[in-house]
Structures are given as C-alpha cells and as structure tokens.
Design a protein around this nucleic acid. Sequence first.
DNA 1: CATGAATGAGTTTTCATTCAT
DNA 2: GATGAATGAAAACTCATTCAT
Lengths: 189, 189, 189, 189
Amino acid sequence: MDQRRENILDAAKKSFALFGYKGTTVDQIAKIASVGKGTLYLYFETKEDLLNEIVKSLIAEMRKLADASISKGGTIMEKLHSATYSILVYRKEHELLLKLSQEVAQFGTPASQHALREIEEGVIGYIKQHLEIAVANGSIKPCDPEITAFVLVRMYLVLLVDWERKHPPLTNEQISDLIQLYMMDGIAL
Amino acid sequence: MDQRRENILDAAKKSFALFGYKGTTVDQIAKIASVGKGTLYLYFETKEDLLNEIVKSLIAEMRKLADASISKGGTIMEKLHSATYSILVYRKEHELLLKLSQEVAQFGTPASQHALREIEEGVIGYIKQHLEIAVANGSIKPCDPEITAFVLVRMYLVLLVDWERKHPPLTNEQISDLIQLYMMDGIAL
Amino acid sequence: MDQRRENILDAAKKSFALFGYKGTTVDQIAKIASVGKGTLYLYFETKEDLLNEIVKSLIAEMRKLADASISKGGTIMEKLHSATYSILVYRKEHELLLKLSQEVAQFGTPASQHALREIEEGVIGYIKQHLEIAVANGSIKPCDPEITAFVLVRMYLVLLVDWERKHPPLTNEQISDLIQLYMMDGIAL
Amino acid sequence: MDQRRENILDAAKKSFALFGYKGTTVDQIAKIASVGKGTLYLYFETKEDLLNEIVKSLIAEMRKLADASISKGGTIMEKLHSATYSILVYRKEHELLLKLSQEVAQFGTPASQHALREIEEGVIGYIKQHLEIAVANGSIKPCDPEITAFVLVRMYLVLLVDWERKHPPLTNEQISDLIQLYMMDGIAL
DNA sequence: CATGAATGAGTTTTCATTCAT
DNA sequence: GATGAATGAAAACTCATTCAT
C-alpha cells in the first residue's frame, strides 16, 4: 500500500524536524506512523534511505513549484515575488529541509546534496537574472545581483518561517508589503 | 589545568557545530582534543553536561558583548549597527549556538533555554526601543518596531553567517553598506 | 514471553551468587541465560533494577513460605521446626539472599532493605513468641528468647547451607535430629 | 615507611569489609588511608596483590593465635572453648575474612585459598580430636565429631559476629555461658 | 619519593536491523 | 504481509594503572 509509505514518510519528516536525523529513533517514527517497526523496513532499506527519500521528495516538490511559478507573467517585482514566494510556501517542509541540509552534509548521498544545492542556486539564479534586467532597465538601483538575490530569498524565509516560530504568522499580503518596505523602499525617510 | 578544559570545550564546539550533539561521539571529541576519553570525564560529568557548559559560556560571552556595545554613542543608526553587529560578530560561535539551540530544546536544561531566549529578546528589545524613538523622531518611516527589529537582526545574520557558507566573507564595511542599502534606502529608485 | 524473563532472572541469581553484584557483568548474565545482551534490557531497565527484582522476588517467596508454615500445628518444638525450616528450605536462594543482602545495603532500594530486615525479624519474632510461651509453660529452661531464637535460626542455616558447602547435604530428618541434640538436649551427659 | 603500608592495608580492610573487593575502588582506599593513589602502588603491585596481602596477613594472625591457644591446658570443655574462641577473637577481621573468602574464591591466588581452607580445617580438626576423646571418655554423648565440631565453631561465630551486627555485643563470659547452655546442656528440661 | 591527572581497556546502555511468528 | 522481540555493534561511562611533575 502506498498510503502506508506516505504515513511513514510523514512521521519521519515530523520527527526529523523535531529531533534531527541522529536524534530520531526508528521506534519513534514507527510509533508516530502507527505501524510496526519492521513494516518500515518493507518500504525503506535503512534509516538513511528514509532520509534520502524525504530529501529527494522535498526537492522534487519544491522544484516543481519553482518551475511552475517562475514562468508567470507580471511586472518584474511581481515575478520576483511569485518566484521567491512560491518556492518557500511549503513552510514546514522548508524548515525541515533547512534542518536536514546540515545533517545531510554528513549523511546524505552526494546526489541529495547536489540536488539541494542545485535547487537553491536555481531560484537564486533566476532571481538574479531578473535583478540584472531590472538594474539594466534602471527599475532598481545598481546593486550586486548575487548578494541581493541571496538576501531577498532569505528575507522571505525570515518572515515566513523564523517569525512564526514565536509570533502569530503573517499573511501573504503582509509579507509582500514588508518586503516592499524593507527591500524596495527602505525604512529611511 | 584549565587549558585542557578549554581544549575539550573547543573540540566539542567544533564537533557539535559539524555533526550536532547526537551526531558527535565522546571518542570524537577526545580525539579532536587529543586527550583520552577518560580525561573528558574529569572535567565534565556527562556528555550532556559538556553541552550545557558550552551553551552557558556562549550565552555569557554574547551577553557581555551585547551589554558592552549597547551603551556606545553615535547616531541612532550607528547605535543600531553597533548593537546588532557586535552581538553577531562571533560568527562561528553564533552559528554553533544557532545549531545547538535546536537540539538544546531537546536536551538542554530549562536554564539554558531560558537564557538563550532572553539574550535574543534582549537584543531585539534594545533595537526595538531605538526604532521606536526613530519613528517618533521622524528619522525613519512609520513601521512595526517589533518586526523591523527582528528583520534587522536576521539580515545581519544572513550577511554574516549564511552568506559566508558558500561565498567569500564580507567585510564589516560591506555589511554595513548593504544594510544601509537594503534596509534604509531600499533598492527601488 | 515470561519464560525468557525467568531465564534471565535465574541466570542473574546464579551469577550474583557466584560473583556478587559488582563481580557479575551483564555480558555474563546474558551468556548464561543464552540471550543477547540487549534482550536483558527489554525486561529490566538497568542492571541494578535486575538486582532489585531478584531481591524482591526472593523476599516474596520466602515470606509466603514462612506465612504458610507458621500456622501449622503440633507441639511447640514441631512448630519451631516447621517455621524455621520452611523458611530456610530454599537453600540456594537463601544463600544468595545472604550474599546479596550485604551488597544490597550498598545498592538496593530502601524498600528492599526494609523488606529484607522485616522478613528476618518476622521469623525470629515468631520463634521468639513461641519460646516465651515454652519458657512460661516450663517446657524449656529459662533463657533469653531473643538470643535463643537468633541462635536457633542460625543453627538451621549452618546445618542447611554452610555444611553442604564442603560435605554431602544432610536430610531434613538428620537436621531435625541434630537440632534436637544440640539445642534441646545438649551434648553433655 | 612501614607505617604507611599498614595504613593502606587497614584502609583496604575497612573498605573491602564494607563494599567487597570489586565494590571497592582504589580511590576509596587511597582516600581512607589519606595517601595519594599513586603511593598505593609503591607498596602493592596491583589491587589484587593488596587483597592477597590482606588475606595472607589475616591467615597468619589467626594461625598464630590458634596455635598459641590450642596448647593451653584445662578440662576438655575449657580446651575447646579456648581453641574455638581464640581463633574467633579477632571479630572484625574474621568478618572480613568471611566476606572476602567468597570473593577470594574468585580472585585470590590458589595459595590464599589453600591457606584459608587449611586454617579452618585445622581448628575444626583440633576440636574434632578432642571431641572424639570426650566421646570415648564418656564425658559427652555419642555424636558425630565432624558435625559437632563444625556446629560448635559456627555457633561461636554466630554469637560473636552475627549477633553483634544488630545488637550490643556479648561479653566473653556471656558467650561461654550460652555455648554451655545451648550445646552442652540443651534448653530442654 | 609522593602525587593525582591522564589514560584506555572493560563495563553498562542504546538502537538500527533482522527474522520467527 | 505485518509485527515487535531479539540481537550485537557502537556509544557512553568507569576505574585500575601509569607517569610527568
């Protein structure tokens, strides 16, 4: 059954997000997924395999999302926003990815690590291109497009993921406005 | 000897930063510190005790730094910069703290967790106060001081810590200029 | 399975009796019980827990035995004999209890220690009562009932347990006769 | 210095008596003896060597004492009493010997074990001889001299050592009287 | 000499993986 | 198939012994 497999993947995601890869025991995952410990090994060779599956699926999901949103039309700013935002919209999962990416450096297959880097660089590269156009256009001030793209992506993450850890989450609209304020217009008068 | 204790603490910091708490074995720490495994237990009761000592010392260091810099004079922007920057200047250590803070939620004593939260809130609170004054002054646009302080601190972290993970580090001057550009003036024309 | 738990308990009893608590390794117990080392921890939290379980079960067994036999009728001497004897009939186990009782003072829970003392005092107290009656009756010579009860119990132990360490064991009948000879009639003409 | 050596031996005796051989750490002994841990190894090769020294000295002491008292004159009962009693007079030490003899079976050198057995058998043998004479004399009832000697020795031990664990110790006179009562005359009227 | 900090072999304990039911 | 009891390799921890001071 494929439902069972999903169950286990979800349980593992949950536990990895909370305790990290090493900090999660197979027993925990099995308990959260409400299956026997042995069942887990019907679907995944090892605990590490499970990790890799999760990373792979997260990456695939986010890539699809990024690809889809990257082609959308609109002004440059709208494009930037939709591209950045869409890839980050899976809040919890991105948080997990962030957490795992550190341990993956230790445990993940080179393939996982490569894919992870690729997708991050893909989004940043896409944004960078549009920033370069905008600078050439004169629609924004001259600035290093690499750094600016990097900071822009992180700002979204900060407002989406970090902020909500200890505060009520912001709506998409609020986030969009804040990015406009902090990155576009500046807070100086 | 106190040098030996420092050795062990440094080795543990290094290993915890690389592999996390659970991912680090006592043997590893001992090997990195070039001491016997038993030696470690002369200075720390348990592996967890070692973790707590590290967290405690990191917190103390950063608090001292923050307190010292917070009183420095200058314009409001300079104050903000010096306060934010100084607390984040211990790049590696902050990175470690960030990493550990997740596992500490699992293992650390409530005291560690409280101190960690307190120091973060202390800096943000200090910045928030100055932002409120600045808004009242009319030196900056009206904006939510809480969110702005939060974003400001995080932007420093992004430029200091995250950026350097895959790029050559930025100088203090560059960081200062970039903050001015992104947060103050905005990239929009 | 409960059989496995018993196996482990028996193995531990055997090893504790031979080498003491500290002198017994968990590996030894596992090997004697013909189970993996990890199996042991499915049934007992720690090695100390295993010790306490053994002490608890020994105490329970002996208490049951003592209670059962204490009510049996007959002459005063028969009563004394059945009470004393029955509690000591579990030779090996009493020997173990004796051995452990010293280490238990170091490691056992206060509950174990209390129970251990209580049961010893219970038997001696019971015998003491009957000795007092016997003295009042004039069925035996005037003597300190406390000391006499104490010596009587020990004599049984000596004949049951100590003797058999280097000699062929005595039958119940022989023991009964010897007690009659040494304690009751005396060897003097 | 030989005083230092005695100090360490005494400390070890004390600790072995309390916690057993395995249960005693070298640190403990050093602390009790108020010397550095290293000092201990100036006088004894290993911890086991220390144990053997103790056993050897205890045996020597007791043998000397036994030999001395065995020749003393008097009635048969007096001879028995003095022989049995003298060997047991070193209460604490005999208790220690008893405790160690179990662990020694595991750890001691064959020489220690042999000596230990020899001395016990020596006393019992001596008493046995005199009992045989007494039976032949008709001064006591016919009885198995082996068992009787064994029981006699043990009864002394019970009154000397066991009793005092939880009661005020008995005087030599009291012990002598009790042996007379229980073993010689019997408590039956 | 006397010491106790340093060590690593040997213990206890944990947990990913297997396999009989 | 699904399970979880059983396992042993690997991790945390202890302590007899050594050796620089």
